[in-house]
Write a protein that binds this DNA or RNA. Structure first.
Lengths: 226, 226
DNA sequence: TCATTAATCAAATGGTGATTAGATTATAGA
DNA sequence: TCTATAATCTAATCACCATTTGATTAATGA
């Protein structure tokens, strides 16, 4: 019920005459990104979503690239924080995996904007280009910092994926799971789960919870010994 | 072994002093799209990939949107044509489904560019905006045609997805498959299969065939009665 | 109340990129 | 060889957009 992706931010719309903060912008940006994609989304679009002008965004983020990175970082950390209590728990691999799958899917359906960004905007993040050699020292410094943060983001994303892989391996080693290719199985999971963000509609006939339950069951059948 | 997506086009690079054709451009455009995404890909980039200037592309395609549509249409038709012999065959639902899954995955790994476009550029296709009211009658006519073709594309894509869904339903009705939610199961398949285009690397340690085989096995376990 | 800093805005700036206009060259038939 | 058409090019055009500059306003601590 509680939306974890959103949960990290102030949920209530603040009075129009108050200033917005970083997190408001991140959330609004995710929404604009989902609709238009990073390249097509303009700073003006994003600003308008929080009743600001484009120029004002630069008070909160150095540039468009950094804003994108902030959106992705927030989304990733939110999801990882959901996984940790599960991977740390003391239950069967099948139970762990089931709970992880469900948590991921529910997170995606609860905040489709951030979920979609994590799928569709990674490429834009990778393609951010270095400033021209003629750029100011300031800009080059900023780019160096950006790159460091981006690298950290990718490392973190790999960690996230290996949380799933770890559980799969454990289950195979303990004999609880069939001896499938753990890399392939993990990517099967992630693909199916990420894809939910593409087709899920909040007004559809199945809730995020319902989808999560059914999909987890199907995916588990693919690996649990019967 | 034969690459079906590419198979529709002339494979061999033509001598540099010959003129390019529509299909050469479509294939090159898919590659540029995979790297940069539609919005970031410039007509100049695409033209350069076939040794032309941007202006020359307009001899072959009315505009950038139409080129995008052409890429997606070609990819979709290629994949659908792979499915038809399978769905029409007389074998068990499990065999049909296995062959369809494998065919789809191999098609994606054989031409990752087109496969990725089918996943990542649909949004760009949806977001193509109408010409201004001040636009020429010619432009408005062109837009009307574009919309019709685009609608047809989406209908065709839905047909493609229902090929899978149909087989799943058949198998459930015949009792060959467990009675899972066919909508969820189908989307689980498609998500996992599409996702292969995101992580597959031709120089990785598993061939497209190998991936297809393993993933099909895992996905079938999720539904076949044991 | 005053000074400082945080947030915001309006109005440039500088580039880029899709598209068009107006040639030019190549080729295929007559 | 001559002509029409296809394919290509160079050089505009015209918008749009990220980012900067230089104010202006609001809130906070002294």
């Amino acid at each position: 019920m509680t939306n974890v992706l959103k949960g990290r931010f102030r949920v209530a719309r603040k009075p129009a005459d108050q200033s917005v903060n970083r997190d408001d912008i991140i959330l609004a940006a995710a929404e604009v990104l989902r609709r238009n994609g990073y390249e097509a989304a303009t700073m003006k679009d994003i600003a308008a979503a929080v009743n600001l002008t484009a120029a004002s965004l630069y008070h909160h983020f150095r540039n468009k690239d950094t804003l994108l990175l902030a959106v992705l970082e927030a989304g990733l950390e939110a999801i990882i924080s959901l996984m940790q209590p599960i991977t740390g728990s003391r239950c069967s691999s099948a139970d762990k995996l089931r709970r992880m799958i469900r948590a991921h899917i529910v997170a995606v359906t609860d905040n489709t904007a951030v979920g979609a960004a994590m799928v569709f905007e990674i490429r834009a993040l990778m393609n951010v280009k270095a400033p021209a050699k003629t750029a100011s020292a300031d800009d080059r410094q900023a780019y160096a910092e950006f790159r460091a943060r981006r690298d950290a983001f990718f490392a973190r994303r790999d960690q996230f994926e290996s949380l799933f892989r770890q559980v799969v391996r454990e289950g195979i080693e303990s004999g609880e799971f069939r001896p499938v290719d753990d890399g392939i199985y993990t990517r099967t999971l992630l693909g199916a789960q990420n894809w939910v963000g593409v087709w899920y509609r909040p007004d559809g006939h199945l809730s995020g919870e319902a989808i999560a339950g059914r999909m987890a069951e199907i995916l588990l059948e693919g690996i649990v010994k019967s």
